[in-house]
Design a protein around this nucleic acid. Sequence first.
DNA 1: ATGGTTGTCATACAA
Length: 271
Amino acid sequence: MKLSVTTWNINSVRLRLDLVARHAAEVQPDVICLQETKCPNDRFPLKALKALGYEHIAFHGQKGYHGVATLSRLPFSATESMSFCGKDDARHLAVTFGPGAGAASGISIHNYYVPAGGDIPDPELNPRFAHKLAFLDELMRWSDRARPTATPSILVGDLNIAPYESDVWNHRALLNVVSHTPVETTRLEEWRQAAGYVDAVRHLTPEPEPVFTWWSYRSPDWAAANKGRRLDHVWLAPSLVPTLKGATVSKAARGWERPSDHAPVTVTLEL
DNA sequence: ATGGTTGTCATACAA
């Protein structure tokens, strides 16, 4: 069976319900993982999203900031959210599908929103950058504990790091810009390898082909300038890699009316 | 080197 999964930093789910609806209609993913819902749980637009065909929804939000949600056409059997660095930020949500989802032992999907890290790439001067590095260190320790897992898993989300040279519009210019500094990109690679995942987008579109998923609101002509970064990722357990049939960035969504600054990334598996 | 935009919540702050 086919399983398609979208990850999208929506930058307020209430403000952009119509964009979620449009993406759902055009791409028809089975699962949509959203980040930056910016919505407390008691204000989450559950009915409107169910009406799009996603009857099974897990959400974990807070007032004003962060927030993740996973929308699914297929039922899932368990949900879990982890907290990091002793904070109760809503930055993670996992759902587990039973064997009916295609894989014999079921599939888990982890949905992450990694801290952006502020502007100054120095943990001594910038507590938000220190928090980002500590968050990644904690993920690394968690990965070591969690392996090996019984159910194959998919990890998606806004990881707020562009790890490779062709994940940014200008590698040299961004080496000291938060999201592409070596201390971040090294940690991201170490985390991915420690957790045993394969980068799905780069598996199908290797370097040096540029791939971007985010374009700043501050760029007046974002499409022409194309000063993008690949901040949004889909990682697959090795056992799922042979099932990977496609990975697409819906760049057009960045040009829709009142867009998120992130574009949806969708992978399709044939299980 | 600097400033550029957006969302939330209601005045800065985070991204």
